[in-house]
Amino acid sequence: MNINIDSEGAFGSAVVILEPGEKFVSEAGAMYRASSNMEIEVESRKKKNEGMWGAFKAGVKSMFAGESFFLSTYRTNDNQSGEVGLAPTHQGEVRKITVGSETWICSGGSYLGSSGSIELDTQYQGLLKGGFSGEGLVFVKASGEGELLVNGFGRISEVEVRDGITIDNGHLIAFTEGLEYTIGKAGGGWISSMMSGEGLVMKFRGNGKIFVQSHDPGRLGGALGALLPPRSD
């Protein structure tokens, strides 16, 4: 498997070259190009032996993650190598994260794709944490060994965390397992915190790595949504 990140500027995308027998998984709407020998299967996130009910629950969970209900799986069907291109919706970078010695936890909307060897698990954040973090209710945990692709709105930066860090809601992409977070207020008191416009933030404790995005998609959505006529559905 070979992953070429095509642009690190405003419009990042990735082309994944798969050898026979290799598998790659992506968020269902992410594929924009593929060689014609690529077999594309749409599956919901389900754990083994959980059956339809498990699939349904997993689907509902990932819907709350701001992620498509389903994931797509790609493999070639003719014993030849093939390629599949993945692109996010927003302007921004795409990054490759190697999962192995570290397990990564990704905010729902930042997950773009991962190699078939990576195990994905959706983690429900709870209403309080998930509802207020601005990152969605569900995070995607990527463990095992392989490559994980994430997308960011704007520029993606890597931060080494020693002891802790505070991240504004809406800017989180992914963090290493071992870091714990709580939702809290940015400033000293609730009023100054709300007045500052920062509102709620994610307070991380521990040591590890975090990827953050320079812009918060929710703010663009809010700004555009307010300018558009109301919807009826």
Binding site: G85, T89, G221, G225, L228, P229, R231, S232
Partner: peptide, 24 residues
Amino acid sequence: IQTRSPRNLAAWVHPFRMVKSKSD
């Protein structure tokens, strides 16, 4: 081939629109 889709962006913005109230 282009690497972004205007339609996908529009579909993403859609849920941010206010919901029309019934009295309108």
